[in-house]
Amino acid sequence: MAPPLMTVIGAGDIAAEIDRHRPELTEVVRAAYLVHDAGDSSNPHSSFLRFPHRDRSRIISLPAYLGGEFEVAGNKWIASFPDNTRRGLPRASATLILNDCATGYPFACLESSIVSATRTAASAVLGAQTLLGTRRARRVGIVGTGLIARHVWRFLRELGWEIGGFRLFDLDPAAADRFGAAIGSAAGAADAEIVVADRVEDAFTDCDLVLLTTVAGEPHVHDPCLLAHHPVVLHLSLRDLAPELILAAQNFTDDVDHAVRERTSLHLTEQRTGNRDFIDGTLGDLLRGRRRRDPGRPAVFSPFGLGVLDLAVGQWVHDRVVAAGRGHRESGFFTGAED
């Protein structure tokens, strides 16, 4: 039996497949969550490689197996170096290896910063729709207007969300201005009110959906009164909210054991309270109807980001690229390997 082909898929082919297929990818991510919720997966804790001389930089390993309709294993290796932006480079870079579950052989290597951003955005928008019960928001507040925020906006747009306005905050006001200009020039968004906020708190005011996509390592939002109007908060960067805000809200995540570690806001809240009673459930609980959002309370969705989602999106991309005859296929990659 010959070893399998190895297919290398670059960012251009990945972006081409993801673009204009975001509604389908949202359903791929939904299916992956349901398979994980059913227990047909293995998702070990991520491993964090840190550097003693670079406090903000890290490389994360996310191994996983996803069964059900997917039946694929693999590992994402993603680097986050925030200082890259000063060099004109993206903050994050990543690769994703997919393994055949029958033989264990790797069969694909994908550029994965786009895969990672796509699964994060799809998860966020799925969580927003599930918690709000609609694809409509009077105003959306966005804190951190970088890559992930742009991907979430594309999902909102392509899934046909009706949004009346935006409140944008970034430590770099020019970045918020550019993000606002991109939104304003998009089809169907011409009538949306777009305001660049001077303070992070202004991105919460009068917004029924708030998106947090920063690189904060410690909580910087402390006032629970910001949640008094009961918004849905997509806490994608995981470390923005002080325990006071967590305790003031209903809290949902993707996997409790994964999310309550590595000094996330949920982890800090557990350390303060000595328990996890403040966590109301997972997105899987919401999708299966075991838990419901209380509309009379704010809701915070803090997804840690599961490797099984990378596998689901990566396999979807791989299958489409190969079917279209693209990607670099190497037949001799494993030739000469020892038995």
Results as ranks from 00 to 15, higher is better:
134 T>W: 10
86 R>A: 13
172 D>L: 06
209 L>N: 04
103 T>Q: 04
203 A>F: 09
35 V>H: 06
275 N>D: 15
209 L>F: 06
175 A>D: 15
105 Y>V: 11
135 R>K: 14
168 L>T: 09
86 R>Q: 11
118 T>L: 02
316 W>S: 00
319 D>S: 09
315 Q>Y: 00
122 A>Y: 05
137 A>V: 01
297 R>M: 13
311 L>E: 02
19 D>M: 03
278 F>G: 07
115 V>I: 15
89 L>V: 02
218 E>V: 11
287 L>V: 09
246 I>Y: 12
33 Y>I: 08
55 D>M: 13
303 P>R: 04
269 T>R: 11
163 I>A: 05
304 F>P: 08
323 A>H: 04
286 L>W: 01
117 A>E: 10
20 R>L: 02
22 R>V: 07
89 L>C: 07
327 G>H: 05
299 A>L: 06
298 P>D: 06
295 P>L: 06
257 D>Y: 12
98 L>P: 08
1 M>R: 13
124 A>V: 10
138 R>C: 00
45 H>C: 08
279 I>V: 12
52 P>W: 04
8 V>G: 01
331 S>W: 10
316 W>D: 00
78 I>D: 01
47 S>H: 15
51 F>H: 10
128 A>P: 09
323 A>F: 01
127 G>M: 01
151 H>P: 01
271 Q>I: 05
167 R>A: 15
47 S>A: 15
93 S>V: 14
15 A>C: 12
295 P>S: 12
20 R>V: 11
321 V>N: 04
6 M>A: 11
214 T>Y: 03
126 L>Q: 04
28 V>S: 02
139 R>C: 12
43 N>W: 01
60 I>G: 02
298 P>E: 03
163 I>P: 07
263 R>I: 09
23 P>I: 00
294 D>N: 14
91 R>H: 01
214 T>Q: 01
281 G>L: 06
201 E>R: 12
7 T>M: 07
256 V>C: 08
185 S>C: 10
302 S>F: 01
168 L>P: 10
195 V>M: 09
158 E>G: 10
183 I>D: 05
203 A>C: 07
188 G>M: 08
147 L>I: 14
104 G>I: 13
322 V>D: 06
61 S>I: 06
334 F>V: 07
52 P>H: 10
273 T>W: 11
144 G>K: 06
